[in-house]
Computed example of a mutant assay.
Amino acid sequence: MKAIIFHGTGGNPEVAWYPWLAERLRKRGYDVEVPHYPGLNVEPIAAFLPGVLAAHEFGEHTVVVGHSGGAALLLALLEHVKVDRAYLVAGYCTRPNESEEPVLQESYDWDAIRSNVREIYFINSAKDPYGCDADQGRTMFDRLGGTQIVRNDGHFGDYNQDYDEFPLLDRLIG
């Protein structure tokens, strides 16, 4: 199995729970990638996505994890590639606040996304400081099905929210 963990806007592979989860998955035999994409949610998704598609191999034994802007990236990505499972943490598919969101597409091919992922999980908080909340998770769930999990864990890691481990996500991935 392979896992690719996509950081959020302004993030990098060394923050939050990404290194912890990567190590946990490696110990279970996963080949893990945690790429650094400084252009995430800076460059328009139409220009950004081809580089991501070219940089990784995806397949029926691939698990993808995205946090915040990285979860929004997964929606665009899943229109083009097949994976086993996708985990969208603090994800969103519409503007969650007043900030520009170049990672978002104007619309999504929900049927293509649904057919390209065997299982999809949305993990959001009831309240999120950036608006990536349970309502956003519900919007994606309503279009794609899958499993929605609502916690009370803020943004699941941020500059002012330490979140160095994510046992729930580790258990879900298995």
Rank of each mutant, 00 (worst) to 15 (best):
D142E: 15
R95I: 08
L40N: 04
R95G: 12
A3H: 06
Q105D: 02
L169P: 01
R118Y: 11
G145P: 10
N97T: 11
Y18S: 00
A90N: 11
V34Y: 01
S68G: 07
H80K: 15
Q161C: 09
D162V: 00
W110H: 06
P96T: 03
H67A: 08
L169S: 06
V64H: 01
H56P: 11
N124V: 09
P38D: 12
K82T: 12
A3I: 04
F122Q: 09
G157E: 04
I120C: 10
P129N: 02
E57G: 02
A126R: 11
L49V: 11
E165A: 11
A134K: 12
P44M: 12
D128Q: 10
D84K: 11
V83A: 03
G174I: 00
D153Q: 12
D170I: 02
K2W: 06
N124H: 08
E119P: 10
E101W: 06
H80I: 07
P35V: 05
E101G: 01
F122G: 07
I123T: 07
I45R: 03
E106Y: 02
A72Q: 10
L53V: 05
V32T: 05
Y121A: 03
A46D: 15
V89Y: 08
E60I: 08
R85I: 11
T94Q: 14
A90C: 14
A86G: 08
V15G: 11
T147L: 13
Y92H: 01
H56N: 14
S68H: 05
H61T: 15
E165N: 07
F166S: 00
G70V: 01
D111F: 01
V34S: 05
A22G: 03
K127E: 13
D162C: 00
G137M: 07
V150L: 04
A86I: 06
Y130W: 12
P13S: 14
H56S: 11
A86L: 06
R151L: 15
E43D: 14
R24P: 03
Y18C: 00
Y92M: 00
P13T: 02
D128F: 04
P35H: 04
E57P: 00
I123K: 06
V89D: 05
A90R: 07
N97V: 13
P35E: 04
R118C: 03
E57A: 07
D158N: 14
A112S: 15
D142F: 10
H36I: 00
P167A: 09
L74T: 09
P19E: 06
G11F: 02
H67W: 13
V89N: 05
T147D: 13
R114H: 14
Q105M: 09
N152K: 11
R85V: 07
E106M: 04
L25K: 01
G29D: 07
T139F: 14
A134D: 14
Y130R: 04
R28V: 00
E57V: 04
Y159W: 15
A46M: 11
D109L: 10
G131S: 10
H36C: 12
V89W: 06
N41G: 08
L88H: 12
E79P: 01
P38Y: 09
A76S: 15
E165Y: 04
